[in-house]
């Protein structure tokens, strides 16, 4: 009857850390971290180079097209990263990892929190790369330190909203590959049919209402105002301007976090 030395059960924090590193570490080997940096470079070159002359000639209302385009580059980079989050979530669901975690003494929200952490890590990398790319083409923060912090915080809020939504859509999917392809289409359509590319006035009149009010456009308006512009054409940071984009972000979180909790808490 020898006394057994039982290992103490790891804390929730330790479990979260182990699962987070399980998702973050391979991204350096698989090249996902490199892709997180490359994506904003590709978006910057791909959007700015062909459209700068055309849009500057016909007018966009800001000091430069770089200033006009920057919010969309940030959002496209974040959306691109969120597709990876959806794939990872779908893979975990399809391969039975979620069920395996469900049968282990792990807090029901720990796997979700770990996936969110890994996604946010990629978001930060991608966001930093996007800002550097923006500075190269001529974008500048011109509304003061507080607004710059607001820009970063708002981008992070959008990132959280997108990652939670992507995680849920991935978990509900039966095919990781189909999820990736299906999510690329909304990213494209909402990006192209937004005020991030061209002013709403350049769209046909029947499409302008949608273009102006859809979430990507609202996020663009918010980020553009927070970045500021020397012409003052970016809009001022008021509740009337920031309310709708904040509402969209909060709504996404409010809808998808409970859904995600239900999916994560489900026992097999």
């Amino acid at each position: 009857m020898t006394a057994q030395t039982l290992e103490p059960r790891p804390t929730v924090l330790q479990q979260w850390w182990v699962l987070s590193t399980r998702l973050i570490a391979p991204s350096f080997r698989s090249g996902e971290a490199v892709t997180s940096v490359l994506a904003p470079v590709v978006f910057t070159v791909g959007f700015y180079t062909p459209l700068n002359a055309v849009m500057s000639f016909f007018g966009h209302g800001l000091s430069s097209y770089a200033q006009f385009l920057m919010p969309l580059i940030v959002l496209q980079a974040l959306a691109f990263t969120s597709i990876s989050a959806a794939f990872r979530s779908a893979t975990d669901a399809v391969e039975g990892i979620n069920k395996r975690f469900g049968s282990m003494p792990i807090g029901p929200l720990v796997p979700l929190a770990a996936r969110m952490t890994a996604t946010l890590f990629r978001f930060v990398v991608s966001f930093a790369a996007a800002i550097v790319c923006g500075y190269v083409i001529g974008f500048r923060f011109s509304a003061g330190t507080l607004h710059t912090i607001g820009f970063i915080a708002f981008a992070l809020l959008i990132a959280v909203a997108l990652s939670v939504a992507a995680d849920v859509l991935g978990a509900l999917s039966s095919s990781p590959e189909a999820t990736t392809q299906a999510l690329m289409l909304p990213q494209l359509i909402l990006g192209m049919l937004s005020v991030g590319f061209a002013p709403a006035s350049q769209f046909p009149s029947w499409a302008q209402w949608f273009v102006r009010n859809q979430p990507v456009s609202q996020f663009v308006y918010g980020l553009r105002a927070l970045a500021g512009d020397t012409t003052g054409g970016a809009g001022s940071v008021t509740w009337s301007l920031m309310g709708p984009p904040l509402a969209w972000a909060v709504l996404l979180i409010a809808v998808f976090v409970p859904l995600s909790m239900r999916l994560s808490a489900r026992r097999p």
Partner: peptide, 20 residues
């Protein structure tokens, strides 16, 4: 052998060659 890696790897060249 990684559907996700290959899908992402092809998306960026498609975009850059398409836009440029």
């Amino acid at each position: 052998k990684s559907p996700q890696a290959v899908s992402q790897a092809l998306t960026l060249p498609t975009l850059i060659f398409g836009m440029l």
